[in-house]
Simulated assay, not measured.
Amino acid sequence: MKKSITIILTFLIFTYCSGQTKYGNPEVDPIQIQKDYSSWWAYQTKNIMLSRDFVALDSLSKEIPKDFFLDQLANGSNIPIRLQSDDSIYYYKLFKIEPNSDTSIKATINQEAFDAYKNFKMENTPFPKFSFKDLKGILVSNETMKGKIVVIKCWYIHCAACIKEFPDVNYLVEKYKNREDILFVSLAEDTPEQLKIF
């Protein structure tokens, strides 16, 4: 009896541990990265993009739906950490936020995850009805975009990061200018007069 209990226990421990390492180890120490906001933010902005496709894992390395993962980040006390991987798939795992971590870490994660969750829920839903005229007076609406690949850039004049992207966006516009099935739309918060001057 004792022998069979030992064998079963050994089997369960082996099974549990092998499941833990199936996806690889965290890229960073989840506790160390929470020591200060700037370290965490540097890691977060470089390695975590909640809008991309990724395999979502709970704190026990079990695969969970992406919307549940984002909800846990938006409403819980979790931090996403990317796991090391030999393939081109991104694996993000939930780790608990340390009680002594900077509260800005939790607040930022909650907000970013809330936005990502909201956007994720909108995927594959019909685009809302809209109609406006561009700076040249040309009508842009759901009907004029029907059947086209639409690339939308949202920006405003005083957004430095937005302006920095212009050369890359302009390169794409030039590259695909002869494609009738691709439409580039640049939505700005500024007035038409400000935009024409800019």
Rank of each mutant, 00 (worst) to 15 (best):
N47S: 12
F68Q: 15
L57S: 12
Y37S: 06
P65K: 11
I105C: 06
E63R: 15
K96R: 11
D86N: 10
Q72H: 07
T103P: 04
P99M: 06
R52K: 14
K35G: 09
Q84C: 00
K106W: 00
Q32R: 01
L57Y: 03
F69P: 12
Q72W: 06
S101A: 15
S101K: 08
D71F: 12
L60K: 09
E98R: 09
N47Y: 05
Y91I: 07
M49P: 00
T108G: 03
I64D: 15
K106Y: 00
Q34H: 06
D58K: 02
F114K: 13
A42E: 14
I64F: 08
Q44E: 10
W41L: 14
F54H: 06
W41T: 04
D36Q: 02
S39V: 03
E98M: 07
I33Y: 00
L60N: 15
I89D: 11
S39K: 02
Y43Q: 04
R82T: 07
L57W: 05
F68L: 15
E63T: 14
S88I: 03
F69L: 10
I81Y: 02
N75T: 11
I48S: 08
I79V: 14
S51G: 14
T45N: 15
A113Q: 05
L70V: 07
Y43K: 05
L70Q: 04
A107E: 12
S88A: 14
L50A: 11
Y37C: 01
P80M: 12
S101H: 02
P65V: 02
K46L: 01
L50N: 10
W41E: 14
Q72I: 04
T45I: 10
Y91W: 05
K46D: 10
W41N: 09
S59R: 11
T108F: 07
I64S: 15
I109Y: 13
W40D: 02
I79D: 08
T103S: 14
T103L: 13
E112H: 07
A42M: 04
N78V: 02
N100D: 15
D58F: 01
S101R: 07
I48D: 06
S38K: 06
Q34L: 04
N110W: 00
E63H: 02
E98N: 10
A56W: 08
D53Y: 00
N75L: 04
D36T: 02
F69C: 05
F95Y: 15
S59K: 08
M49D: 13
L57V: 12
S39Y: 03
A74I: 01
K66D: 11
I97Y: 00
K46A: 15
F95R: 01
S51M: 13
N100K: 13
I97D: 02
F68K: 14
I105G: 09
K93V: 09
K106D: 07
D67Y: 10
S38N: 14
W40V: 02
L50G: 08
